[in-house]
């Protein structure tokens, strides 16, 4: 009985909360464990939407409509129409202006407050996503990679090179760690780009050799393997 009730409480009546937790964890895991920066950003977006899902599912009421006034409560629609039974008999002034809703009528509308909070959150979310993508592009221009471990290796090598040369050593005692990096970035970025271009060329040649085989076929065979 006990186990069953927990099961039904969690997975039948609160399934949306469970899914929100799962999506949150997927996003968090992607941000922690995935090495690719774009994957990390997608994980961040999934995290964001999970929280939005939580807020929106709080606002749901059973048997409630969307938070837009029905014609009988509509401040403009109520002028011409004959008003409903109870409100019409209560006050004759209903036809002249809108009235505040009763408690029972309030239960008929979904809660608008979480919707408003989340609406702005979505738009700000895409703005921050764009900013993060711009930073990612800049990182790719500087280092030629968006994989975290390769980035760390390159940074380590850059640090070693900076500590070897005596001029930068002097500067480092001051504040110019940030100054030392751009030149290194330029060198590293250039090197990485050329190697990348070579890789691409070779792969393209291979692809042209086997052009008769369609790429979808290739993909399928890869998937089968």
């Amino acid at each position: 009985m006990g186990e069953e009730s927990i099961f039904s409480e969690l997975f039948l009546e609160r399934l949306n909360y469970c899914i929100y937790v799962i999506l949150l964890l997927i996003g968090l895991w992607a941000m922690l464990a995935k090495k690719n920066l774009i994957k990390k950003l997608i994980g961040m977006s999934i995290f964001q939407t999970a929280i939005i899902l939580f807020y929106v599912s709080i606002a749901v009421k059973q048997e409630a409509t969307i938070p837009i006034y029905l014609p009988e409560h509509d401040p403009h629609g109520s002028h011409g129409q004959p008003s409903g039974d109870e409100s019409g008999s209560q006050t004759a002034g209903h036809a002249h202006g809108p009235l505040a809703l009763e408690t029972e009528e309030i239960k008929g509308y979904a809660n608008p407050l979480p919707h408003v909070l989340m609406l702005t959150a979505i738009v700000v979310g895409v703005a921050t996503l764009g900013l993060a993508l711009a930073l990612t592009q800049r990182i790719f221009q500087g280092y030629g990679t968006i994989e975290e471990d390769e980035l760390l290796q390159k940074l380590d090598r850059a640090d070693q090179r900076a500590s070897l040369s005596p001029t930068t050593q002097k500067k480092r005692k001051g504040n110019s760690r940030t100054k030392a990096t751009p030149s290194v970035i330029a060198k590293k970025g250039g090197g990485a780009k050329t190697s990348l271009a070579k890789n691409k060329k070779t792969s393209k040649n291979q692809a042209k050799g086997s052009i008769a085989k369609s790429t979808t076929g290739k993909r399928q065979s890869k998937a089968k393997e």
Binding site: P67, I68, E102, P112
Partner: peptide, 25 residues
Amino acid sequence: PASKSPVSSHFIGKTGVDTEVPNMV
């Protein structure tokens, strides 16, 4: 608790009176 809170009830109940806008959001 979120639906019972006075803030959201105020928004649902009084929006029509205060602003005459049908879309509460």
